[in-house]
Structures are given as structure tokens and as C-alpha cells.
Write a protein that binds this DNA or RNA. Structure first.
Length: 199
DNA sequence: GGGCCGATTAGG
DNA sequence: CTAATCGGCCCG
């Protein structure tokens, strides 16, 4: 697969961890705003207590009824919309949470929506990037591969440069190194710390 | 209907 | 450190 090309359905028909890692460097565009994905997390539909499918019948139903690449969007803490891709059809199904973007286009609009001036504060968190791109519950279940206004394209990041760490903010299954990010990137959600490793 | 929880964030 | 705020889920 080649940089700049649109992501195909097959991209999401692989394991959640592979998809999460390879989404780093890809570009996510929606309605005039775009950013390079610099931080993700993988969640597994089976055997992962941190995944919604562990406790929510509705999440299990979502996996069954939607095609790979679909948007799984939900409201967290009653305040923040979080955006995931459904991953399905590989050895295991699951989700990839998009946690941070490096803003590329529509930066002025993002600044207005976020009421923030610094580019590194626009999309450096899962709830912040949805606010910047104006992604919310109406996008739950849509297919960004084909939906009007959306575009997903491949990056050129060397996979060997991507770091991994524990996932952030969860209380279950903290030990899995399923957070992926670009090291020393000022657009990731947190200063790199804690136990990090190359996959 | 009530109670609890949570893949977060901004502000003090 | 904490408040903010609500869908999903379970219980009764």
C-alpha cells in the first residue's frame, strides 16, 4: 500500500493491534478539517475487559451488524464524544480509538470550536479531536470509507519508529501495551512517560 | 424509575 | 484535586 492512497476496506479486516499501529501516520479528514493520526489504542472484542463489548450488549451487536471500518462513536462522561474504527474479519475483532491528531487542514475552524489558540491543543486527546472535527453521535455507525465528506488516506510512517505503551484512562486490563503513538510528538495526548517499548 | 459507571477535560 | 453531565446497563 502506498502513501496518500485511500484506505480500503481490507485495511480494517485485520487484528485491532495491527490496525491501531498502522493507522499512525494516516490522515483522517472530515468536512474540511484534517489531521494526521499520531496516537491510537486497540481494543479487542473478546477477552479484553476494557472493551465495550465486555459489558455492553449494544457494542457486541454493533460489531455483528456493521462492516469493518465503520465509525463507533460514543459519549464518555456525559461530555465527550470518542471516535473509533470498527475492526472486523481478521483473527480477532475489536476497535481502534483515535486519541490524537496532528492538525493539517481547517486549523482556524478547529481553534474556534475548541476556543484554543495553540495547534498542539486542538486534537491532543480523544475528546478534543472530536470537538475540533465536530464528530458526534450522528456519526455513530457511518462508514467513513464511503461517506460523503470523509476521507481516510495512508501515511508514510516507518512502523519501526512507532512506540507502544499501556492504554490510558482505563481501569481494566491496564497491562496490555495497546497504545500506539509517535514518540516525541507534541501532538500526542500526554508527554511520553511510563513504561514504553517498541512492539 | 433509580443508581452506578466511565476509553475525558478544564480549571483551581 | 474535582466538577461537569448523560447513555448504557442492571436491578427491582
Amino acid at each position: 500500500m502506498e502513501s496518500g492512497r485511500k484506505l480500503e476496506r481490507a485495511f480494517f479486516q485485520r487484528n485491532p493491534t495491527i490496525c491501531a499501529k498502522e493507522l499512525i501516520g494516516c490522515t483522517l479528514s472530515f468536512a474540511g478539517c484534517a489531521g494526521m493520526i499520531v496516537e491510537t489504542e486497540a481494543y479487542a472484542a473478546l477477552g479484553d475487559p476494557a472493551c465495550h463489548t465486555w459489558r455492553r450488549p449494544s457494542a457486541r451487536e454493533f460489531v455483528l451488524k456493521h462492516q469493518p471500518g465503520s465509525a463507533y462513536v460514543y459519549l464518555n462522561y456525559g461530555l465527550h464524544w470518542l471516535f473509533n474504527f470498527l475492526v472486523k474479519g481478521g483473527e480477532s475483532d475489536g476497535f481502534v480509538l483515535i486519541r490524537a491528531l496532528k492538525p493539517l487542514h481547517g486549523i482556524e475552524i478547529m481553534k474556534q470550536r475548541r476556543n484554543r489558540l495553540k495547534a498542539e491543543e486542538l486534537c491532543n486527546g480523544p475528546g478534543k479531536l472530536t470537538q475540533s472535527l465536530e464528530i458526534n453521535g450522528v456519526h455513530h455507525g457511518i462508514d467513513p470509507i464511503s461517506a460523503k465528506g470523509w476521507n481516510l488516506s495512508l501515511g508514510k510512517t516507518d512502523l519501526a519508529t512507532i512506540h507502544a505503551s499501556s492504554r490510558i484512562g482505563i481501569t481494566q486490563a491496564r497491562e496490555y501495551p495497546w497504545r500506539f503513538f509517535l514518540p516525541r510528538c507534541k501532538f500526542v495526548s500526554l508527554p511520553s512517560r511510563g513504561a514504553e517499548s517498541h512492539p
